[in-house]
Design a protein around this nucleic acid. Sequence first.
DNA 1: CTGAAAGCGCTTACAG
DNA 2: CTGAAAGCGCTTACAG
Lengths: 345, 345
Amino acid sequence: MSITIKDVAKKAKVAPSTVSRVIADSPRISQQTKERVREAMEELGYHPNYNARSLVNQSTKTLGVIIPSSAKVAFQNPFFPEVLRGITAKAYLDKYGLYLSTGQTDQEILEEVKQMVYSRRVDGIILLYSKANDGVLSFLLEQTFPFVLVGRPQGVEEDEIFYVNNDNIRASKTVTEYLLLLGHERIGFIGGNLDYVVTKDHKMGYERALNNANIPVREEYIVYNDEVLEGGQEAVIEFMTLEERPTALVVADDLMALGVLRMLDEMGISVPEEMSIVSFNNVMLSELSSPPLTTVDINIYELGFQGTDKLIHRIADPSYDVKKTIIPYRFIKRQTCLKRTVNES
Amino acid sequence: MSITIKDVAKKAKVAPSTVSRVIADSPRISQQTKERVREAMEELGYHPNYNARSLVNQSTKTLGVIIPSSAKVAFQNPFFPEVLRGITAKAYLDKYGLYLSTGQTDQEILEEVKQMVYSRRVDGIILLYSKANDGVLSFLLEQTFPFVLVGRPQGVEEDEIFYVNNDNIRASKTVTEYLLLLGHERIGFIGGNLDYVVTKDHKMGYERALNNANIPVREEYIVYNDEVLEGGQEAVIEFMTLEERPTALVVADDLMALGVLRMLDEMGISVPEEMSIVSFNNVMLSELSSPPLTTVDINIYELGFQGTDKLIHRIADPSYDVKKTIIPYRFIKRQTCLKRTVNES
DNA sequence: CTGAAAGCGCTTACAG
DNA sequence: CTGAAAGCGCTTACAG
């Protein structure tokens, strides 16, 4: 059908192997021949067939990107588009292609990952989430297939895993301490899905800050929710029906915080006067809410970029051994936090 | 290295071709042999090599997904994650893989598309935007490579192109008429990037509605902006410095409308009392703003799903000829529109 | 500096 | 119902 190396060879009156070497720009081919071959390629409109190449090279120059199961939830959170942007940028630089997972359930995703590695569709995998007892992770580990995790590994063989992450524990601690410094003592915590390690880290940071300040951690001030958008709203309802309502909130995600804001608005509770809020991610929209969100910029783009960088390193050089990279975060103070007024119990 | 068809053949004491037929579940192989071969595959942990397959089949079972150049802008708009979700769902059903473009500029993207088709990395392409004089489009057309457009084609050979789209002209007309019915006569239009066909369609619908109502279209009421988020804000400033300010706004995108809302809020102009707003897309967040946005649900997921369906059809059956699919939209009335109060000039 | 040959891991007419 | 052989389009030792 299409033009192959043989056609070019014939036209340039050389052997196919010579054409192949010209493509690779081998120094062992004379300038003259190169030119003649290139001319022939040009005239015929030759382009190398990727599959043939991959087959003999045993490498595809593509990276598999695994998006968490709840694609519906996941995709509506700007986190994923933004990591993807970082991944994309780095992949482009190194001429890697990106192969996207399409499964919706954990089961489907595991199947897909297996296909990807067994059928040699990708050279490495980048896992966009971290949770405990993840089948995908153990599979990858047991196959010793190159992969990197965006998030903190948890469970067995942590030191075997390549990953990029923020220090989410510290970030959460900082943020809670900030609230403490503003005089808040009744601080609520709205976490994401507890399956994810990041949620545990947020909670841990929160608790440490309270402990250091000798403020008891109260069960009723801690709430988790899967739903990024509705989650915040439900949590607010829970807190607001408490006898001793919190005066400040640590929220796992900007989008959730948007939901919180909206619900508080409906309830006639003003932010930051009556309720202070800090969240995480510094998603584009966090600046647009009213009031603009005080949040932690975790540098999502960089997580994607560095993760990809690490993966490519790992693929190119099996002896590469820098297992983890911690991306710095930045606390962004906007307008959802205020000193606690002392006119309540 | 890894287990091949030959290893299985040896173990099962058959010819490689037989193994191949067992994989394809050919009816011409006896049940007995099938079982023996399958056992061998199982024991050895055999998995077919995708590249080898693709090479002989001349097909990759992968779809290329092309995201518009301004990935930064694009990705921050929930439109793309949401189409991707639709694409992903359909691709999964038909066991197609997804290959993502990574280029940032038009030039880079064109290069990538060329690579994809020349090197046979994908069986078809899904273009997530439509603009006039698009190099990618003409290239695909001239190669007669299977592709589908999400959006309305414009320029030459429109009837040659497979596409899924909304009737954006009518949607925009409807929405403008709604504002008209509420008594608004000074209606501003904030469009997106004029390079995109959707922007032209929105404008056309807007103008038609005004024309039908015998209301002159005023230059100063029409504004375009690339930046999804900041765009709305700038536009508001422009309008508000006019002597005769608009009392209602048609906004190209929910995110832009969020920007508009925020700016209006800062200016102390209340929505919907002093300014009515209608936008497009019905992105998840449009419900969370205060007030919640009146918008047009264009069914983004379905655009992706149906587009992919069309592409797969086209690939599987070259005689398939249903060129266009129009996805219905739904006008969602929430709280950003109000009857115009007549206490102004 | 260049070519002939083998091989990457599959599939599919062609025979029998 | 099964096998031997050719071929998909490349690359890369091995010779010369």
